[in-house]
Amino acid sequence: MLRVTIVFLMMSLAVGSVFASATEQGDGARLSRTCAGCHGTDGASPGKVIPIIGGQVEKYLQKTLGEFAADKRPGDVMRNLAKGYSTVEQKQITAYFMARPWVNTSHAVASTAEASLVASCKGCHGSQGEGKGSFPRIAGQHPDYLYLALMEYKQGERTSGLMKLVQKLDETTLKQMAAYYSSLN
């Protein structure tokens, strides 16, 4: 069963990439425009808890949409909406948002935290929180969103490898970490 799933996944990925390169970049824009209602034009979310996704790391966006569609992330509107798009369409959408400019949060919280507080974040999220691989950019993200995400990891509602480390940290520390990264450019 597992092998069948993997083969299927590989096939859909292959089809996806062929399709994406064969169609105009316009398909990503066409599908992604509806996202702006909540995430802001081109994903530059002006809100507080709805994250900035324009300029986010592409693999992370793909992983996230896939997890929402598979009910593997805590429920909000994305758990419904992600199911409205095929794997190919999800890739077109994430490729579109990855290519937009990142616009820093306007709600950054000044942080007095020592850099040592976030020393263990850097391995995955990059030295300045810029994100890499499938690990998201967190620098310049909304502090309220970052705190909510950290709390979901702390409570085990969301899981992702080393993020379980935050389960040992208290809420004040998590708030400081969120503030720290929100104010990084």
Binding site: A36, H39, G40, P46, G47, V49, D76
Partner: peptide, 17 residues
């Protein structure tokens, strides 16, 4: 209450859009 916060964000976002 989290959805309530999202509702507030929704408005901020769509008005700017």
């Amino acid at each position: 209450a989290y959805y309530g916060k999202c509702a507030d964000d929704w408005a901020t976002s769509i008005w700017s859009d």
